[in-house]
Design a protein around this nucleic acid. Structure first.
Length: 276
DNA sequence: AATCTCTGCAACCGCAGAATC
DNA sequence: CGATTCTGCGGTTGCAGAGAT
């Protein structure tokens, strides 16, 4: 028998989300969390696929998301993690609070990849271009690059060393780990090894761990909704899990005044929010 | 000022594994 | 235990804005 289908494709809207749709989704999840994504669009009054709702929420509307370009430290960590995990963006994203796999994937493809090539580093193998005889990698790499990079080629031949050595992180902690990885101590795909090493990497990298200034912001296409009274990653997460206990006005969601707010704000929660 | 080209990002698509019946 | 569906992931696409001509 199995389950019911995810969504009937008929009447499902595609394309960019409107501010109105964002509001509906945010309000629904605030009041109900999400029981299952399949049910979300119908219950929230959206003509979207549940999959699309999940994507919109996780990649754009989640309150714990950071915004803007990755910092140097984050970029360095992405490079290090990519060197050992490959294109497992979700695993990489799990190590960068407030960043999504989609965001990291995009940043890799648009920024980091080019930067590495300019430095003479193969972004696939993380080895100096020309060092290995894997011409397949190089040719495939060039296929994926814009023409300006194809014509210019590596502009920095002096960078014939490990990526992680050339892009030194502020802590300097990640470089050594990468070196140890490349001597064969890491087995590709070994999830337990990955977890162990990544946890070490995570723990000692205070720069990236749960930033103090990580303030959750809800944003729509037109609005940024401050929920800055939450001061840490953990608080953000726990708040999310218990979001049904709060009303929208607690978070400064006055922009939703035109929307029907289902739940009433409890006086106690107001007090808590004000104290923060 | 108008047009063209390039770049970056949000969103979609298809697949695989997990979950459910 | 097989069939079916759900969820999450990675690859890819399409559009909008920026920059170049």
């Amino acid at each position: 028998m199995g389950r019911q289908p995810c969504c009937d494709k008929l009447g499902v809207k595609k394309g960019s989300w409107t501010a109105e749709e964002d509001k509906k989704l945010i309000i629904f999840i605030l009041n109900n969390h999400h029981c299952c994504w399949r049910a979300v669009p119908k219950l929230a009054g959206l003509r979207r696929c549940g999959k699309s709702c999940r994507l919109r929420w996780t990649n754009y509307l989640r309150p714990d998301l950071k915004r803007g370009l990755l910092t140097d430290a984050e970029e360095q960590l992405v490079i290090d993690l990519h060197a050992r995990l490959g294109n497992r963006w979700s695993k990489i994203a799990a190590r960068l609070p407030g960043r999504t796999d989609n965001e990291i994937k995009n940043h890799w493809n648009t920024h980091i990849k080019k930067k590495l090539v300019k430095m003479g580093i193969n972004p696939v193998t993380h080895e100096p271009i020309g060092k290995s005889s894997d011409e397949d990698h190089q040719s495939s790499l060039q296929m994926n690059l814009p023409t300006d990079h194809q014509t210019n080629g590596p502009e920095n031949p002096k960078s014939h060393h490990n990526v992680s050595s050339s892009l030194v992180s502020p802590t300097g902690s990640t470089t050594d780990k990468v070196t140890s990885l490349e001597d064969g101590s890491i087995t590709g795909g070994g999830s337990e090894d990955d977890e162990f090493l990544l946890n070490n990497l995570w723990v000692d990298d205070g720069v990236l761990g749960a930033p103090d200034d990580l303030m959750g912001n809800f944003r729509t296409n037109n609005n940024v909704m401050d929920i800055g009274f939450l001061s840490s990653w953990d608080e953000n997460c726990s708040w999310l899990m218990g979001c049904e206990d709060f009303g929208l006005s607690d978070f400064g969601f006055n922009c939703f005044s035109d929307m029907e707010v289902v739940k009433q704000v409890e006086p106690q929660t107001m007090e808590v929010a004000e104290k923060q």
